[in-house]
Design a protein around this nucleic acid. Structure first.
Lengths: 132, 132
DNA sequence: CGTTATGGTGACGTGCACGTCAAGAACTCT
DNA sequence: AGAGTTCTTGACGTGCACGTCACCATAACG
């Protein structure tokens, strides 16, 4: 299955449209953990899932360090309860942060829509003036 | 009125929680245009509106250059029609970009909510085991 | 009148997220 | 065996968004 297939660095790059440097950099920052076949990196399904989340996080303006903490949350098997509790708290904070951001984005969108509406009206007026 | 009041750099910093360096930097990048009283900068209502948008844009992960272009759109008096048309196109692209981002953010939020739900369940299970 | 607060202009430093060589190993093709 | 491709590990370079520091001006305070 393509599910369990492992990808070379090049295949991974092509799949996600990033450079090898980026993937090695992410590994050095412990965001990805490709397995090694000799020296070569092989990226697993897990790495693909993580990279997807990394790129998404970046689009939201999160730092790689922020993203790393989120990723760790997504992959907790079983940990100390204290740590679990702590992690849940952090995650909830992030959630409310993201909710706020989404709401703000909604507002920004409608404001921009207003501006576009206004600009289109101006364009129309200019056309009228032209015709006269 | 507090509307037409102009602010010194320090007042502006306190109002928006940024450093003087940041405001000077934004001016050098033509994001703000404080008037000068002698040498000193005085920030107008316009600068306040722009700074608000700048900081919001930053939270969305936009670069200062991206933001500058958006700001220019927000402040077009009357320009060349061609330029207006061009600007509307750019704005519409940004809009769809932002919409996409908002949708994606909504998805990320619900995914994170799922993870939190799962983590809380784990925490509960751990508590059960403890009690036994 | 000296000092403290506030503001100014360079100019150099910094953290992040990579880009860009350089040099070498490993495999493939001919 | 030689050439080419793909990969590796350093190590240094780069653009962005400021931070920091040195040094100068000006106004207010005691």
């Amino acid at each position: 299955m393509t599910e369990d297939e492992v990808l070379t660095i090049r295949e991974m790059c092509d799949a996600f449209n990033v450079t090898p440097r980026t993937l090695r950099f992410y590994e050095s920052k412990e965001l990805l953990f490709p397995i090694r076949e000799g020296q070569k990196r092989l990226f697993t399904r897990r790495d693909r899932a993580r990279l997807k989340l990394i790129l998404r996080g970046k689009r939201f303006g999160f730092s790689l360090e922020d993203i790393r903490q989120l990723l760790d949350l997504y992959e907790m098997g079983d940990q100390q309860k204290t740590q679990l509790h702590e992690t849940i708290k952090i995650a909830q904070q992030r959630m409310s942060e993201m909710s706020r951001q989404r709401d703000e984005l909604g507002q920004a969108i409608s404001e921009l829509a207003d501006q576009i509406g206004w600009a289109e009206k101006q364009l129309d007026k200019a056309r009228q003036t032209d015709a006269a």
